[in-house]
Design a protein around this nucleic acid. Structure first.
Length: 469
RNA sequence: GGCGUGGUGGCCGAGUGGCUAGGCAGUGGUCUGCAAAACCACGUACACCGGUUCAACUCCGGUCCACGCCUCCA
């Protein structure tokens, strides 16, 4: 199926055509491992995950690279503060990053290259840029890219560097660059770097911020590849600089499709530590929210729009997941034998869902299809018009939709094994009371069970126990 | 100053030149001993002002407002 993406380069939706038929090669800007990732970061990773899942949904084999930035100003600063070596310091954040994305049901990329494992590749790329005349060594020993030499500079961000007003936010004197917008490829060692440095043809130092993405994408995906993504804040200067470096060095197009996701706010405000609305995944888990609920909130709006993360939305997600769990439970206990056939209903839903997803990842449209199908199926279940065979077809389709969502409670086992003994005894007692139509006792026991953290609902087939949150 | 995004019913959030998006909350109802769940019904929204058109929330122009980027940032 044809899939369309909004390409930041052309500023319009374009049909996705990969370089190699059937294969989608993508580079996704990953974490800087100097701290625990926050929900703003996860918004981006979840967007990238949906992109990946959508490509797979459409039959592509995905080759994804997500870099781990394990050396930069902040990483060096904080590792020194912690009194740890760089790799020792970043190791725990790398580990927690992988734990977090697993909890959030983010599919793993094929490659997670770390910057510090690719210094030779970066040096070699910088050398090429020097040889081709795009880079120069400044008096401070650092190597800079000269944007004046690259005619296409600004094609992604549509910035006319000549029209900018340099110097308003940055003091020119701090730099030994020829032009303010020139950016560092190699930063010469300074005292604040401590033990962190590598030898290079330009003396000891460390790579600039942008060069790792060029060097590593090239290594794993080739000089030209299909998709590059990141947060909108990376569009300039990071991605613009990547294009400049890569295309200047290779003399060919760097990336065909650039996709950027919007910002995340928390309760309507920009997330920041000073506002006290800065949340990591573990912060939210400690508050009792589940990773699935968090993922669903982050899936709540189109990736290019700004997304407001709120506790109200988290609560809504919980209810949504519970109502789906209830539907799947009902589907699992169908006893009707004769099938009326739900063919058209399922076909329409399938088609509507794919159409939405393939239209620049219209997740909200897809979610409407999901809810529409749930409502239709519930209606039929109320009328006893769903056979066992129909139910399994319906489940199969929801399972297919979940290849995108990754959070549907498809395999909700009846809370069986986890029911505490006291609750289980009360349940038996209540059943006995109900058999004797002793509703006063039944209601009293229901309250007792509720006090223990469980809700009891009565249905035609008996009592249904649900854990309260 | 330059570049860009957006303003949809109580809240969240899709979309389209004419045909009910959807969710949450609310109200009424069906079902139920009650409750819950599920289902049904109801609210007739698209910032403002013009223009194009048989017809605009959807296209064009302008206004107002909010927000983002212009070397920390997903």
């Amino acid at each position: 199926m044809e899939i369309k993406f909004y390409n930041s380069l052309s500023r319009r939706k374009e049909e996705f055509v990969p370089l190699t038929p059937g294969v989608a090669k993508m580079y996704t800007c990953g974490p800087t491992v100097y701290n625990f990732a926050h929900i703003g970061n996860f918004r981006a990773y979840i967007f990238e995950d949906v992109l990946r899942r959508a490509l797979e949904y459409c039959g592509y084999r995905v080759e994804q690279v997500m870099n781990l930035t394990d050396v930069d100003d902040k990483t060096i600063r904080d590792s020194r503060e912690a009194g740890l070596g760089l790799s020792e310091f970043t190791e725990r954040f790398k580990r927690s990053f992988f734990e977090d994305i697993a909890l959030l049901k983010i599919e793993k990329a094929e490659y997670y290259p770390a910057a510090t494992d690719h210094i030779p590749e970066m040096i070699s790329l910088i050398k090429t840029l020097m040889d081709r005349g795009y880079a120069y060594r400044a008096d401070d020993g650092s190597v800079y890219f000269s944007i004046a030499k690259f005619a296409n500079y600004g094609k992604l961000s549509r910035m006319d560097m000549g029209a900018q007003r340099p110097g308003e936010r940055v003091c020119n004197d701090e730099y030994d660059k020829d032009a303010v917008a020139d950016f560092a490829l190699w930063k010469s060692w300074s005292e604040s770097d401590g033990e962190v440095f590598w030898e290079s043809p330009w003396g000891k130092g460390r790579p600039g911020w942008h060069i790792e993405c060029s060097a590593m994408s090239m290594k794993y995906l080739g000089k030209t590849f299909d998709i590059h993504t990141g947060g909108i804040d990376n569009l300039f200067p990071h991605h613009e600089d990547e294009i400049a470096q890569s295309e200047a060095a290779n003399g060919c197009r760097f990336v065909n499709f650039w996709l950027h996701c919007g910002y995340l706010t928390v309760e309507g405000e920009k997330m920041s530590k000073s506002l006290g609305n800065f949340y990591t995944l573990r912060d939210l888990l400690e508050k009792g929210y589940k990773a699935e609920e968090i993922r669903l909130v982050l899936l709540g709006t189109h990736y290019r729009k700004k997304l407001d993360f709120s506790f109200k939305a988290l609560g809504q997600s919980r209810r949504t997941l519970e109502s789906f769990a209830e539907l799947f439970r009902r589907l699992g206990s169908v006893e009707v034998k004769v099938s009326k056939g739900l063919g058209k209903l399922l076909r329409d839903a399938d088609e509507g869902f794919s159409k939405a997803i393939c239209d620049d990842l219209n997740i909200a449209g897809a979610t409407a299809v999901l809810h529409g199908l749930a409502k239709d199926v519930n209606k039929l279940l109320d009328m006893d018009k769903v056979s066992e065979e129909d139910a399994s077809e319906v489940m199969k389709l929801f399972r297919k939709f979940d290849r995108i969502y990754g959070v549907l409670p498809l395999d909700v086992a009846p809370e069986g094994d986890s029911i505490p003994e006291d609750v289980s005894l009360l349940l038996d007692e209540r059943r006995a009371a109900r058999e004797q139509k002793d509703y006063a006792a039944s209601d009293r026991i229901r309250d007792e069970i509720r006090a223990l953290g469980w809700a009891v609902e009565d249905s035609a087939s008996g009592q249904i126990l649900k854990k309260l949150h």
